Amino acid sequence: MFKVIALLTRKPGLTRDEFVDYYENNHAPLITETFPQIIEYRRNFPDLTQVLRTGDTPDPQFDVITEMWFSDKSGYEDMLATHAQPEVGNRIRADESNFLDQTRIIQFVVDEREFPRS
């Protein structure tokens, strides 16, 4: 499996509830319809009322950790090629402008490892 993570920040002026609602009811369905290459798609919304931190550790600078799995690297590259098509990329960016601070999108490939349990 090939995994990608995105750290996304809500658009100024949106509450957390508005952000989550828009992502779950508008953007997530758009992504799953547009990119069949994504075989698993999770959105993790931090609950900062239940956080472990030390000292003056600041709040994170994002509102959701999005995880996307692909069958392999070529599936990810195919998704990127689909996104690069102007009609697709423009549609995604237009939807993102409704709820994301697009200047703060961070997406990266991860080397996911699991500790074996006995």
Rank of each mutant, 00 (worst) to 15 (best):
L7K: 09
L8Y: 09
L8I: 15
R10Q: 11
R10F: 10
P12Y: 00
P12G: 03
G13Y: 08
T15S: 14
D17K: 01
E18G: 14
E18L: 01
F19D: 14
D21I: 00
D21L: 00
D21E: 15
Y22K: 02
Y23I: 09
E24L: 05
N26L: 00
H27K: 08
P29F: 01
T32E: 13
T32Q: 08
T34I: 05
F35W: 11
Q37N: 14
I38N: 03
R42K: 06
R43I: 11
N44D: 13
N44W: 00
N44L: 04
D47L: 01
L48W: 02
L48F: 02
L48E: 11
L48D: 13
T49S: 06
Q50G: 06
V51F: 01
L52C: 04
L52W: 06
L52I: 08
T54H: 01
T57H: 00
T57P: 02
Q61G: 14
F62M: 06
F62S: 10
D63H: 06
D63C: 09
M68W: 04
W69M: 06
W69H: 10
F70V: 06
F70H: 06
K73P: 14
S74L: 03
S74Q: 10
S74T: 11
S74N: 11
G75K: 00
Y76E: 13
Y76P: 14
Y76M: 07
Y76A: 07
E77V: 07
M79Q: 09
M79F: 05
M79P: 13
M79T: 05
M79L: 02
L80F: 04
L80V: 11
T82W: 02
T82K: 00
Q85F: 01
E87T: 14
N90H: 09
R91A: 15
I92M: 04
A94T: 15
N98M: 11
L100C: 11
D101L: 03
D101M: 01
R104K: 14
R104A: 12
Q107F: 06
Q107M: 08
V109M: 04
V109E: 15
R113L: 08
R113I: 03
E114D: 14
P116T: 08
P116H: 04
